[in-house]
Each structure stands twice: as structure tokens, then as C-alpha cells.
């Protein structure tokens, strides 16, 4: 585990509250940060999004892609707070995470900022719409 501060791609002040589990959140009305594990249903949070400042989505293994769907579902529901990818978060997955709506990363092992920069700017365009602001190629073609 590293003590490095999470990498944030947002301008607002970080919410430093510890994240509670989804189960704890259900019985706790004052929590502002919650942590979602891969097997949990993110949609349980949808009625409560307005009081959440940060949602941590756990990646126990980078090969487990459930967190990508969880993130996109939260953004589709209008969640505007911080979405943080936590755990086995590696530089080669970071661009896809960004596209699914993550805007903060708290990796187990520190990331090389140069590699992060390169990874986020590698592809000039995108082929599909997701949870980010990128305009898909199909839209560029028919503007």
C-alpha cells in the first residue's frame, strides 16, 4: 500500500471522509462517501446520490471489469461527485476508466505521471459514446 495522494482529475476540493461499505451506508444517513465492491449492485445507491460527495469503486484485480459498468451507471444517473477507482488500478486501464466516468484514482502501486499523461492522450478520438465528454467518431462524421 502506498501513502501517495490519490490522482484527481477534478478541480474541487477532495472529500477526505472515509468511505463506508454499501451495507453500512444503508443504515447510516450521514455518510458522504461510500465504497462499492465488484459484486454489489451500484443501483442501490441511485436514490441517495444527492447526498454523496464521493464513491469509491473497488478493483481487487484489474482484470475484473465490473467497476466500469458501475461507474457508467452512476454517471448515467447524474452523479456529479468524485468517482474514484481504488485498488489494482494500472496505467493501461486508466483511459477506459476515465471514459466510464472515473475522475480520481487511488492505485495500490504508484503510477508514473508521465505514463498516465501518455495513456490519457493516446487515442485521438473514440468510437462510441460513454460517460465522458468525448464526441464519438460517428458524430464527427455527420456534423
Amino acid at each position: 500500500m502506498t501513502e501517495q495522494a490519490p490522482l484527481r482529475l477534478r478541480e474541487d476540493e477532495a472529500c477526505m471522509e472515509p468511505a463506508v461499505t454499501l451495507e453500512a451506508f444503508a443504515g447510516q444517513t450521514n455518510a458522504v462517501a461510500v465504497r462499492i465492491e465488484p459484486g454489489e449492485d451500484t443501483r442501490e445507491l441511485l436514490p441517495h446520490l444527492d447526498r454523496l460527495r464521493r464513491i469509491d469503486i473497488a478493483f481487487p484485480a484489474f482484470t475484473d471489469g465490473r467497476g466500469y459498468s458501475a461507474a457508467r451507471i452512476l454517471r448515467e444517473a447524474g452523479f456529479a461527485g468524485e468517482l474514484r477507482a481504488v485498488g489494482d488500478v494500472l496505467v493501461d486501464q486508466i483511459a477506459y476508466m476515465r471514459r466510464c466516468g472515473f475522475d480520481a484514482f487511488d492505485p495500490d502501486a504508484p503510477l508514473d505521471p508521465k505514463d498516465v499523461e501518455a495513456a490519457l492522450n493516446r487515442f485521438p478520438q473514440v468510437y462510441q459514446s460513454a460517460a465522458d465528454a468525448s464526441t464519438p467518431i460517428w458524430s464527427l462524421r455527420h456534423q
Partner: peptide, 14 residues
């Protein structure tokens, strides 16, 4: 093919 290429949500499927 285009939709599925570099799909950000579906690149680490089961």
C-alpha cells in the same frame, strides 16, 4: 466492429 473497438466498459469482461 467500430462500436466494439476499444469499448471502455467491455474490455475486461468475464
Amino acid at each position: 466492429r467500430q462500436w466494439s473497438s476499444f469499448h471502455p466498459e467491455f474490455s475486461y469482461l468475464p
